[in-house]
Structures are given as C-alpha cells and as structure tokens.
C-alpha cells in the first residue's frame, strides 16, 4: 500500500516541478516569440513602410477586383490608426491573356506617388520572369513600365502587370485628390 501511494506521488511531484519550470520558461519567452511571429507575418509590410504598425482593410471596387487586385489596405504608424503612412494593394494577375501562371505582388502608394513594389512570387520561367526581375530592381522608378517592354518575357507579363499598376494608381490618386 505504501509503495502503491509512494510511486504515483513521486511521479506527480516530479511532473509538477517540471511543469513549473516549463511555465516559467514560457513566461520568459512568450512575448519575444509572439513579437517575432508578428514581425515575420508582416515582413512584406515592412518592405513598403519601415514604420508599419497596424493596417486597416479598405473595400475594393468592382473594377479593382476585375483587374486582379485582391486586397487594399491603409497602413498606419500607430496603434490608434490615426497616422496614415499610405496604401498597399495586393494583386494577383495572370499574364498572356489569362493563360500564364499567376503573378502575385504588392504595390504601395504614399504622398501621391508609387512608394514600392514587392514581388510575392510567380510561376514564370527564368526567361519569362526577366520583366519581373527588372521590376524587382526598381525598373525606371516604377513610374514608366513601358521602359521595361524590351525585357524578355514582357510580352507575357507586361500587359497584366501594367493594367494592375494603372488601376491601383488611378484608384489611389482618385482618393488622394479628394
């Protein structure tokens, strides 16, 4: 009887002590882990706005939806969402008259002009992606996409991307000038 009680009690005590140590470690590390995970999840936002803190989704117009824009967000540098930094449009477009692979990217605007372009991934071949590489390098400050038409693969990707660029720019400026 003595042994019957002693063994489970001993195991219980060891388990409780280990649980306590684990709780303490979790208490010490949880904030750092949560902060890192938040930053990782929002890494793309920091590429557009280094001071990014919070974001607010904005309703899309039918025209934007039809042009491949999947998300429009206003970006703020504070928790209260009073200090606006600009807007980010997330796009997923398909080149070659809808027969190619999707090209995913985000485009941001601030102070009445294009702020940055971030490539989120595409299914183009190395040759087909030359125009996208040109954009990644900040091709012509992203203001004149026609200058990249000479790049290989632009015939496949240029049309869809420039259409999305134009739509986003028009939408941003229409609201900016209000």
């Amino acid at each position: 009887m003595n042994k019957l009680l002693k063994l489970p009690i001993f195991l219980g005590v060891v388990g409780c002590l280990c649980g306590g140590v684990l709780s303490l470690t979790n208490f010490i590390t949880k904030d750092k882990i949560a902060q890192d995970e938040y930053e990782r999840a929002n890494a793309a936002y920091y590429k557009h706005f280094a001071e990014f803190k919070t974001k607010k989704e904005v309703a899309l117009t039918d025209e934007l939806k039809a042009g491949g824009v999947t998300l429009k967000e206003e970006i703020f540098s504070d928790e209260q969402q009073t200090a606006s930094l600009g807007y980010i449009y997330t796009c997923s477009v398909v080149g070659f008259a809808g027969k190619s692979s999707p090209i995913n990217f985000t485009l941001s605007f601030a102070d009445g002009k294009i702020n940055n372009y971030v490539n989120l991934g595409h299914g183009e071949s190395a040759q087909g992606a030359k125009f996208l590489d040109w954009l990644d390098k900040g091709g012509n400050n992203l203001t004149n996409l026609d200058a990249g038409k000479a790049e290989t693969g632009s015939s496949v990707t240029y049309g869809a991307i420039s259409k999305a660029f134009s739509l986003c720019t028009a939408d941003y400026l229409a609201n900016y000038n209000k």
Binding site: F10, V14, V21, N26, K32
Partner: peptide, 23 residues
C-alpha cells in the same frame, strides 16, 4: 519509476531548449 522520471526530466529540458531557441 526511474525511467519515467528520466524521460520527464529530459522532455522538460528539451522543451526549454525549444522555447529558448524559438525566441
């Protein structure tokens, strides 16, 4: 109960390393 005790201790230490490395 020595083996279960060893396993509990080792598992605790591994979980601590995992959390510290994650952070």
């Amino acid at each position: 109960v020595r083996i279960p005790v060893y396993i509990i201790i080792i598992a605790t230490l591994v979980s601590i390393v995992d959390m510290l490395f994650h952070a």
